[in-house]
Design a binder for these strands. Structure first.
Lengths: 203, 203
DNA sequence: CGTTAAGTACACCGTCTTGTGTGCTTAACG
DNA sequence: CGTTAAGCACACAAGACGGTGTACTTAACG
């Protein structure tokens, strides 16, 4: 509302309520899920009175949507802008996630909220499409025959790795990376011949 | 408890409570999710008194676990046993799901329950591993170079398609099938030469 | 200093949630 | 027919949930 939203001038414990609320959301929604996190607990962790929370957000739904909007998928957004990598390397770097990743809140939100009309669900959809588009752009840059298709395929691999990691409680991104290598090398005409490709497939 | 659990002799409307409860679970957990389905509503749909429900299941948790155990993923279990298909065709048929599929309750349960220790979460893990193993068996039968790896990769594609279909509200299985084709043809030494393979990739 | 906006404390509401306790009816089976 | 187990109706607990009302304090800024 005011232009003083970010960076509480003096964080005398009290002034930066909105940011503290969103910080607590990030922590609790990841640790416990959205539905299992009550507003009471959230406010307690954020060290914010409940009244204040409801002055910043009309309801929990709006808070959830904003939480997703604010979520910075540091891996992806960072990878796409790295100029030290070739486009092909960037496509593969997407699967090189640190093991401490909290795991795709967009999928979690869509499943937990269970309502495609929910603002957060809509945003999750938009975000997923945006990632696929970014991947397609990079694929095009890398000279892929059908960039849109490759982008969609790689996006599917990311989601598959995320979902499988969650269910199995074991990192599935290496498997996804292996598949990605095959797809990329098949889609991009490189100097590498069929022999090398076949070797990478077998690995 | 008794040996009369399945097949109510006379379904005079009243006797087969347990089956009706599980039937209602299948319907409601899919339509609304687990957390958004209360025991009151579930009992109403099942036409069962709440007291009866709690005599069959010690709590909702146990009901959820049993719901997952009973879930018949008709597509997968059917596909693996089809003798009219070659192993390779069976691996691809997995992605040929009817559009009316309710979409992987195992992933949904793992996300909704948000507790890896929950019986249902543990079963989901077991099930996913079993599917990967079945895929690996079929891959071995088809003569794949590294059946375990191919099985794990195909399993990841299935989960990716399921998750992505849920989030985007659009069928992602065709994309997964396209990737599967590439993987399978790369992993299985067939009479088909590299030229044909390259064509399939471009499609 | 005085105004104004931000935040606080805390009680409270209605609703929904899982789960029980009690006493009754009904169907199956020997 | 009489026993036994399955099921039923219904009220009720106890707590979590999202959300509000009210009156108060504090910090920033001109």
């Amino acid at each position: 509302m005011t232009e003083l939203e970010k960076g509480p001038t003096g964080s005398r414990r009290g002034r930066g309520a909105r940011e503290r609320i969103l910080g607590a959301s990030r922590q609790l929604f990841r640790e416990q899920g959205i539905n299992r996190t009550g507003m009471d607990q959230l406010c307690a962790v954020a060290e914010v009175s409940k009244r204040t929370a409801y002055q910043h957000f009309t309801g929990k739904d709006e808070l959830v949507a904003e939480y997703l909007r604010r979520f910075d998928p540091s891996v992806l957004s960072g990878v796409f802008d790295r100029t030290d990598l070739t486009p092909r390397e960037r496509l593969l770097a997407v699967f090189d996630i640190p093991p401490t990743t909290p795991l795709c809140p967009y999928i979690a939100a869509a499943v937990e909220l269970h309502d495609p009309q929910h603002p957060a669900s809509q945003y999750a959809r938009d975000y997923k499409k945006a990632v696929a588009a970014r991947l397609a752009d990079t694929a095009r840059e890398a000279g892929a025959a059908d960039p849109e298709q490759l982008g969609e395929q790689l996006a599917l691999l990311i989601d598959g790795a995320a979902a499988r990691t969650r269910v199995l409680d074991a990192n599935a991104f290496p498997t996804a990376a292996a598949v990605a290598t095959v797809l990329i090398d098949n889609a991009i005409p490189t100097a590498a011949g069929d022999d090398q490709r076949r070797e990478e497939v077998a690995r």
